[in-house]
């Protein structure tokens, strides 16, 4: 297999790889940025969004970050879920805190796989369990284990064989809820009965307002996907091909806000907040009944984001 694959791919690479002069041009262009100040490098990089997953992180984590002495910059902690996602909490060089989610599993529904009408769950030891018939749309299957760091992982599966979702909840050694991440099929509501049942039993609080989630585009939502660029000290926001200079119109505590209509007629509220050298965006799709979903690359505890939600979107 290895030999055949290598021979095959070497031929594909040889026929598609960029010519030497193009590679050299790219090399030189990138090398010229090695001595650039951070803000200019930022201007040339599109702001990546978080991986496309449903994500909830516990508010208690953000609160924990602000308490205590954060003497040095850097990563404070990194948690790896059994599903493959990683949450990293840290402090930027300027002292602001951040949390990022990355590294979703290669197989989106991992560790559950449906084969020949059976549902198989892969445990942390690699063992496969047949969980067919052990979950439904109202009652979840729960697999629990304790990792080497003492964190308890509850992996909760619910739905049907054809359309299931799963969430992983982490608890610290004292049993305190820490964080969660999960996956729901596109047609699923954000809070299916099986998920609500598990969270009610374990005392996990529901969000106070709408639910800040990121959803896969296959859910039916079509994002406007605002883009930011920082050039020559100006902050430029591009939405739907239109670029606006929003320099000085936002801060870390107050967002720049604009409302646009989506391609499907839905209302999209676009926010920009942060610093002039490190701005972030958030896009809300607001339904007629007031419910909303959000896609953002901002840290969870961004003041401009939380204050906007509390003032405008809470139930």
């Amino acid at each position: 297999m290895k030999k055949l694959y290598q021979k095959t791919f070497e031929q594909a690479l040889a026929q598609t790889y960029a010519p030497p002069e193009q590679v050299e041009a790219q090399r030189s262009a990138l090398a010229s940025r090695c001595s650039q100040p951070k803000s200019e490098v930022t201007a040339m990089t599109a702001k990546p969004r978080r991986p496309i997953r449903i994500l909830i992180t516990a508010a208690v984590v953000a609160a924990a970050l602000t308490a205590g002495a954060l003497a040095a910059s850097g990563v404070l902690s990194r948690i790896t879920f059994h599903t493959g996602a990683t949450i990293e909490y840290g402090v930027n060089e300027d002292g602001t805190e951040y949390s990022t989610v990355s590294g979703t599993s290669l197989d989106e529904s991992y560790p559950v796989e449906v084969r020949n009408d059976r549902a198989w769950f892969t445990t942390e030891t690699g063992e496969e369990l047949d969980i067919t018939g052990q979950f439904s749309e109202t009652e979840p299957y729960v697999y629990s284990y304790v990792d080497e760091g003492g964190l308890t992982h509850d992996i909760v599966v619910g739905g049907t064989l054809e359309s299931f979702g799963l969430f992983e909840y982490l608890y610290d050694e004292g049993g305190g809820y820490t964080a969660s991440t999960g996956y729901l099929p596109p047609e699923s509501p954000a809070y299916p009965a099986w998920r609500a049942a598990y969270e009610a039993e374990h005392g996990i609080p529901a969000p106070s307002g709408g639910e800040p989630v990121e959803q896969d585009s296959s859910s039916g939502l079509i994002w406007l996907d605002p883009q930011l660029a920082v050039e020559d000290g100006k902050v430029l926001l591009t939405v739907g091909g239109e670029t606006t200079d929003i320099t000085g119109r936002f801060s870390e505590s107050e967002a720049y806000v604009r409302t646009d209509e989506g391609v499907d007629g839905s209302t999209h509220v676009i926010l920009v907040g942060g610093t002039a050298t490190e701005p972030h965006t958030a896009e809300f799709v607001v339904e007629a009944d007031g419910t909303w979903t959000c896609s953002t690359d901002a840290p969870e505890d961004s003041a401009w984001l939380t204050s906007y939600i509390e003032a405008n979107l809470s139930r």
Binding site: S105, Y110, E128
Partner: peptide
């Protein structure tokens, strides 16, 4: 290690 899973699970995949 790269993808945050166990070696047996990765092997299964």
């Amino acid at each position: 290690r790269q993808f945050g899973t166990t070696a047996p699970a990765l092997s299964a995949r």
